[in-house]
């Protein structure tokens, strides 16, 4: 371990951390703007030009609000819940490649914090941990609504994890690797996995909505039935932490979907661009493309939220167990048969 390597990784982690925070903060702003535009309104526009300082104002508000810890709650776990939710949501970014190797100051630097060869499974594990924040927070609040929210969150996450895993298995049959870096490199140019796995992508997308507790599946915090679900008792920055965790989750799942299905930093004609711009600026264009795709997905998340009404709880479970899982299994079988036939030919 040389010093340069450590410095390089430290810088990358810092940049990634700040970028994630910024994206999450501006996602809250974007959410309100998108909601407003879809409803013929203008959205926040008072704090700064076009309301661009709104996230700062919101953050300030969160900081200065009164911190309430209910007397009947379990104090340690009450604090641990949102902390865990925030912590776990950050972990996902570690394995996502944000660009090709870049040449800086005579060194080749990979734009990925770490390329472990079970990257997809790692993401999967981190996602499955995300539910603990909700569960612990909901239980520690000592409130029926919070507990209901926590339990809904847990059962929903477990149910949709299965379909998600099955849809990934079909993808792995095509790609033959669990490493994100290799996955991204396989999709060079326009060979995106979405072409080979449209059904798998659809299943993954629906599950991603469920795993991030976003709108059609936001039953854990369903206002109409559970007031606020698991974060009923939360106020001030702990509430903010939950909200932030949700937006970071959205960012991470968008990044994952872009990387494994939409080619990550690849775009048609990238060889030409890389040839023209060299090894420093070429990959940066890739990074920009990657973020563009991520933002498109985040917009999609919001667009769906402000269009589709919430599912009923039994519909949610029916969709997960009776539709998505059989569909995912069928997808695996079809993919396997096609691959075998193609190999034989």
């Amino acid at each position: 371990m040389e010093i340069a390597f450590l410095v390089e990784k430290l810088l990358l982690v810092t940049i990634l951390f700040v970028a994630t925070l910024t994206v999450a903060a501006y996602s809250t702003y974007a959410e309100r703007k998108v909601a407003a535009f879809l409803q013929d309104r203008v959205g926040p526009n008072r704090a700064g030009p076009f309301g661009l300082l709104q996230p700062l104002a919101d953050g300030g508000k969160m900081f200065f609000k009164e911190e309430i810890i209910p007397s009947g709650s379990n104090k340690w776990l009450f604090i641990a819940g949102p902390s865990l939710a925030l912590l776990v949501s950050f972990l996902g970014t570690a394995v996502i490649p944000f660009g090709q190797n870049i040449e800086l100051f005579g060194r080749v630097i990979p734009l990925q914090v770490t390329d472990i060869n079970v990257g997809i499974l790692y993401i999967f594990g981190v996602v499955s941990l995300g539910v603990y924040g909700i569960m612990i927070g909901g239980w520690a609040s000592n409130n029926k609504y919070s507990l209901m929210g926590a339990i809904r969150g847990a059962s929903q996450n477990i149910s949709y994890e299965i379909a998600m895993g099955l849809s990934i298995i079909a993808l792995l049959l095509v790609s033959n690797t669990l490493s994100f870096k290799e996955l991204a490199e396989q999709q060079h140019g326009w060979h995106w996995n979405i072409i080979y796995q449209p059904l798998g992508f659809l299943i993954f997308l629906v599950c991603a909505f469920a795993e991030t507790n976003r709108m059609p599946f936001d039953l854990p915090e369903c206002e109409t039935e559970l007031i606020g679900g698991y974060n009923t008792e939360y106020s001030a920055f702990k509430m903010g932490a939950y909200m932030f965790a949700e937006y970071i989750n959205m960012f991470v799942s968008s990044a994952v979907m872009v990387t494994i299905y939409f080619g990550g930093y690849n775009y048609p004609g990238m060889d030409l661009v890389n040839g023209a711009l060299g090894a420093t600026w070429g990959p940066l264009v890739g990074v920009a493309v990657m973020f563009l795709k991520i933002f498109a997905f985040i917009f999609f998340f919001m667009w769906v939220r402000w269009t589709v009404p919430r599912f009923r709880y039994d519909q949610l479970m029916d969709l997960g167990w009776k539709v998505l899982i059989p569909l995912a299994i069928a997808n695996i079988v079809i993919t396997a048969i096609v691959i075998t036939v193609v190999d034989k030919l």
Partner: peptide
């Protein structure tokens, strides 16, 4: 390691916690 992480920590323990909370 990862399978232990997913299956035990991510699924089975969630179910345990789920039951105990109820």
């Amino acid at each position: 390691a990862v399978v232990n992480f997913i299956v035990y920590m991510g699924a089975i323990m969630v179910l345990f916690l789920f039951v105990l909370m109820l």
